[in-house]
Simulated assay, not measured.
Amino acid sequence: MQKKKTVLDFQRMKAEGERIAVLTCYDYPTAAIMDGCGIDIILIGDSAGVVVAGYDNTLPVTMDEMIYHTKAVMRAQPKAFVVADLPFLSYQIDLAGARLNAGRLIKEAGAAAVKIEGGVNIAETIAAITAMDIPVMGHIGLTPQSLHRMGGFKVQGKSEQQAEKLLEDARAVERAGAFAVVLEGIPMGLAGKITAELSIPTIGIGAGPSCDGQVLVLHDILGLCSKYSPKFVKRYAELTPVIAEAVSSYIADVKGGTFPEERHSFK
């Protein structure tokens, strides 16, 4: 029987060179499927705001929405390690609020860890949450909650100055006690340098092959989100036409009176 994953597994995996597979998930049936496939980490991302709720970005996502999605995933009783995003404004105002909201994702929703965007500027918050014995996954580089400051979804760390800042961010996240850090939208050479320097695992998304693991948004790999098509996404399926065909067939059957048949009815 597969054992439930813990932070100790990811320390071992980095040491042994075993790559860590991470995907986002927002609901019970998908969590059950993914867990059955042996995914290492399930991330309940605030990306739910874009791919599920239809927002233009992640900024409108609330704590209540994150708790709802996390609870749904946890009902599948996954053996994977479950990390939930702290959404915008849930941790930036003060340390007390950050600790409370992180605690809610663990106590109310059932997650095993939380993810926070930011580096040096958020290190004190990471330290405050880890002091409560709540594991924290960091997130640096292209941080979607900072899209207005960055001028959109742009690759970070191209200049020497930016690269040095990201190295400092990575070091600060590690020193603050994070068990892992997401590297998003940064040059692969820089990601490799960060990965080699840190003792904690790096999880890449648009950061090249040198990271200790990779994460993608589930709806992107399944071809279910047409809003954006980042260069770093690999499509493993194109489910939109499959779903469209099924829905169209259902409509035609209802309109034509061929569904339901007697076998779909009760006597």
Rank of each mutant, 00 (worst) to 15 (best):
F153V: 00
M137E: 06
T125Q: 05
Q162C: 10
L147F: 15
G177T: 13
I129L: 11
P144D: 03
A131T: 01
E168P: 00
A163E: 06
D133Q: 13
F153D: 00
K165F: 09
E174F: 13
G141P: 01
E174L: 14
G138P: 03
A131K: 10
L147W: 14
G157E: 07
A123H: 05
V155Q: 15
S159Y: 05
H148D: 11
V173F: 10
A170E: 08
A131I: 00
G141H: 03
A128F: 04
V155D: 09
V155E: 15
A172E: 00
R175G: 09
L142G: 02
I129Y: 07
L142Y: 04
M137Y: 08
G141I: 00
G151D: 12
Q161A: 12
E174R: 14
A176V: 04
A163M: 04
M150D: 14
A176W: 09
D133I: 00
Q156V: 01
G177Q: 15
A128R: 09
L166V: 10
I122A: 05
G138R: 04
K165A: 14
Q145C: 06
T125I: 09
L142F: 05
R171I: 11
R149C: 13
G157C: 02
E174W: 11
G151N: 12
I134W: 03
G152E: 10
T125H: 03
L142D: 01
R149S: 13
E124P: 05
P135W: 06
P144A: 04
E168S: 13
K158E: 14
E164M: 05
E124Q: 12
P135D: 06
D169I: 03
P135Y: 06
T143C: 12
H139I: 00
M132I: 01
G138L: 02
G141A: 00
A128C: 07
A131M: 03
I126Y: 02
G141C: 01
I129K: 09
A163W: 00
G152N: 13
A170D: 05
I126C: 01
R175Q: 14
D169Y: 11
L166A: 13
A176F: 06
M132F: 08
F153L: 04
Q156E: 04
G157L: 05
T125Y: 04
D169G: 06
M137F: 10
F153G: 01
L166H: 11
G138Q: 06
Q156G: 03
M132P: 06
L166C: 12
D169K: 10
R149L: 13
R171Q: 14
I140R: 00
G151P: 11
G152Q: 11
Q145T: 03
M150I: 01
P135C: 08
V155N: 10
P135H: 09
D133P: 05
M150H: 12
R171L: 15
D169E: 12
L166E: 08
G157T: 04
A123I: 01
P135V: 05
I134A: 02
E160Q: 15
I129N: 04
I122F: 08
A128G: 09
A170M: 13
V173H: 11
L142A: 09
K158M: 11
S159I: 03
I134K: 02
M137N: 04
R175T: 12
M137I: 07
E160D: 15
K158L: 12
K154L: 01
A128E: 10
H148A: 12
S159R: 07
R171Y: 14
E168H: 11
V173W: 07
A128Y: 06
Q145S: 08
I126Q: 02
G152L: 10
P144E: 05
